[in-house]
Amino acid sequence: MDESRPIFAQLAEQIENDIIIGVMAEETQVPSINEFAAFYRINPATALKGVTMLVDEGALYKKRGIGMFVATGAQARLTTKRRDNFSAEFVAPLLTEAAKLGITPEQLAEMIRKADTA
C-alpha cells in the first residue's frame, strides 16, 4: 500500500489483479473484510469500502450469511477494463519519458520487439 492514492482503491485494485490472473477464480469465495484488514494491516472500514466498490462494479457479489464471491464473467470484464486504461496508464508515460531522452516512437517500438524476443 503506498501513500499516493486512497487505500480502499488500492485494495480494490489488488483484488482485481487476483481475479484477472485467476488467483481468485470465479464463483469462489474471497476472504472476509476482517481477513483483508488483518492481511493488509488496514482499518476494516477501509477494507469494506474497497470490497463494496467491487460489489458495486459487479466483480464480487454477496451471498447472504456466507460471504463474498467472485462473479461469473468478472475476469473477462476486468481484463477489458484494464486494457481500455492501458494506453493512458502505461503507454503515455512511456512516451513522455522516451521523448525526454530523445527516443523516437520507432526506436521505442524496436526496443519493445527486442525485449520481447530476448
Binding site: 476482517n34 484488514a37 494491516r41 482499518n43 476494516p44
Partner: peptide, 11 residues
C-alpha cells in the same frame, strides 16, 4: 500491538 489491535477491533 497494531496487529492485535486490528484483529480484536474487527471481532
Amino acid at each position: 500491538f497494531y496487529d492485535r489491535l486490528l484483529a480484536d477491533y474487527a471481532e
